[in-house]
């Protein structure tokens, strides 16, 4: 009898937990149906278009696997641990740019960002550090997101960020949209 009661109680708990979680997920902030649809649309968009940067014929793709075999030996390397969790953000510095990676499955590394170090290189659309705001708009349009000095062009799950100070581009970075991933 007692055993039976205990089993019923456990079943009720499972049902209550399931019901509350379902309420939070479906009735709360998110509608799964919509978010599924959104993510499907996004996935399709992601597959179609993502930012990438080409250096001397070598295509560097954000979110894709990083290997030294493909991208070559770096000038310097640094790794940053998180405060409490495992895993390292690794940064490979090359002559004109820096690639930062994040830990992926099976001890692989994926590319988190490409950061331009100087004005000698240009984006695939021909924009460099030191160019003007107008040149950026000419190359990428005025359909950007703007916060303070930051101008962001979004493609799928990737972002192309320009910092513009006094009408001059002072920073260029391709990065994965970490809020989406």
């Amino acid at each position: 009898m007692n055993k039976k009661v205990l089993i019923i109680i456990l079943l009720v708990i499972v049902l209550v937990v399931g019901a509350i979680e379902a309420y939070i997920v479906f009735g709360g902030k998110k509608s799964t149906k919509n978010s599924n649809q959104d993510s499907k649309v996004q996935d399709e968009a992601s597959q179609e278009e993502e930012w990438s940067y080409t250096y001397e014929g070598m295509k560097i793709e954000i979110g894709k696997e990083f290997t030294k075999e493909k991208y070559g030996e770096e000038i310097s390397y640094s790794e940053i641990a998180s405060c409490a969790f495992d895993g390292l953000d690794k940064t490979y510095t090359y002559e004109h740019y820096e690639i930062t990676t994040y830990p992926a499955e099976n001890e692989k590394e994926n590319i988190l960002s490409i950061y331009f170090l100087d004005e000698t290189i240009a984006t695939d659309e021909g924009v460099s550090i030191g160019d003007s705001y107008d040149k950026m708009v000419e190359a990428y349009s005025d359909s950007y997101e703007n916060h303070d000095n930051l101008y962001t062009y979004r493609k799928g799950d990737t972002l192309l960020n320009f910092i513009v100070e006094n009408d001059t581009i002072t920073s260029i970075e391709y990065t994965l949209d970490v809020e989406q991933n």
Binding site: S76, Y77, S78, T100, Y115, H147, N149, L150
Partner: peptide, 12 residues
């Protein structure tokens, strides 16, 4: 402490 990533410019 050996190498560190480049000090990046911030938008703000």
């Amino acid at each position: 402490a050996e190498n560190l990533p480049t000090k990046r410019r911030l938008a703000n």
